[in-house]
Write a protein that binds this DNA or RNA. Structure first.
Lengths: 226, 226
DNA sequence: CCGTCGCTTCGGTGTCCGCCGAAGCATCGC
DNA sequence: GCGATGCTTCGGCGGACACCGAAGCGACGG
């Protein structure tokens, strides 16, 4: 019984639009200041302060003080995972006709915690699946031996640790799975390294460079619109 | 922005103790009547009715009418996955000294959606890991070739489909991962088949039979207390 | 040292929502 | 039919909480 109370208490923290906005803004793993989060949540700093205190108190956020700023980030990957789960259920949003501020860019490519999301990420997952390099299901993913060799050649081999590394993550804008886990992370990391994609300021969206267009086409056979 | 509102709306559904109780009661995948759920949530039938309407409206529950009863179950595995995520975060409960009604039995062995959970399940996962049959990480799991053979011999080989099948699921009473996904499901199914475990009425807890004690010891090297 | 900036605490207001008692519909069994 | 059972709707009550304005505290910079 008290078990469920804790579940409810945790879920209630996500149950407020302002707090949900804040958490969504932190989904890429970066740390943001209280003010930035207030802006993201569309509330005044006082209100945001209260929300942040609750989230930190509930163990969802970790805070770090630097000078007169206070940076907040998700307390652990577990929290990110929980958010993914909620997004996956909340996702089937009635077809959106309106695109909101920066929506298109976000839908094209963005970061999701430590890996890529959006149309680009889904296309990557599709390409790797079509070539038999990975197999993604609802509950998990596997990399084939061939896939391991491919990732190795590409320079995106996850560290050799015994831990597992392939996981699907339901893309909430595309409603299809993309690659997460250690493989997804290594892949994203390598793409940044190669200069195929670049982070933007103040948004989770990432830009695809010209080199990226060429690279994604030649290496993965992905034709990016335009 | 409206994205986050949907997230918040969904999370808010879990944010009430009564509703959280109901969902937790449905985690094993069975369908329960409105009255049973009212009892599980410790509220009157009128109140439960309102909650159930909201949950069904929010797409978390599916309802089915049979005679004068109405059976509710989780609308999709996605919902179960979401709950697991929340439980994992809400889990680190301050050390419980009091054991609640039926708590010990639940902690020993229970079903979790379609697989096993509790001490038994964690012990199974540990045994399989120690023998190099599976590797479980935070984000996914793998079955080794040796493990595949072992499961095959045991009669718990998941259907051969190309889909992936190994996934860790954080046990919220033990705070350690146990086996979920297709492997976990097949394993649980086989244990029921062998008569090693048996379902109980009105609870997710399962009983370990004498045959089970012997079997788990001989096959997996698991010593069950007592 | 003083103004600016970032963050927090305090108080008051308004709204939302969970709760139950009572009553209204369906279904089942006799 | 008639009562019993399961579920739902309605109405009113009460508590919880999100919100903001105003004020307090600390850190930086000239």
């Amino acid at each position: 019984m008290s078990d469920s109370n804790r579940i409810a208490a945790t879920a209630a923290l996500l149950g407020d639009p302002a707090r949900a906005n804040m958490l969504a803004a932190l989904m890429d793993g970066r740390a943001l200041t209280a003010k930035e989060l207030a802006y993201a949540a569309h509330v005044t700093p006082q209100t945001a302060s209260g929300h942040l205190a609750k989230l930190a108190d509930g163990g969802l956020l970790a805070a770090e003080k630097q000078g007169r700023h206070r940076y907040f980030r998700l307390a652990s990957p577990l929290v990110g995972h929980m958010l993914e789960g909620v997004m996956a259920v909340a996702g089937p949003e009635p077809p959106r006709t309106t695109t909101w501020r920066g929506g298109e860019a976000l839908r094209t490519a963005r970061t999701c915690y430590d890996h890529l999301a959006g149309r680009l990420a889904v296309a990557l997952a599709d390409a790797l699946t079509a070539r038999g390099h990975v197999a993604l299901g609802a509950d998990g993913g596997e990399v084939t031996d061939e896939g391991k060799r491919f990732l190795d050649d590409f320079g995106a081999a996850p560290e050799p640790g015994r831990r597992v590394y392939c996981r699907p993550c339901l893309d909430w804008s595309e409603r299809r799975p993309h690659l997460a886990g250690r493989v997804g992370s290594a892949l994203a990391c390598r793409c940044f390294e190669l200069g195929w994609i670049a982070r933007r300021r103040d948004t989770r969206a990432v830009s695809i460079t010209d080199a990226g267009r060429t690279g994604f086409r030649d290496t993965f056979g992905i034709a990016l619109d335009g």
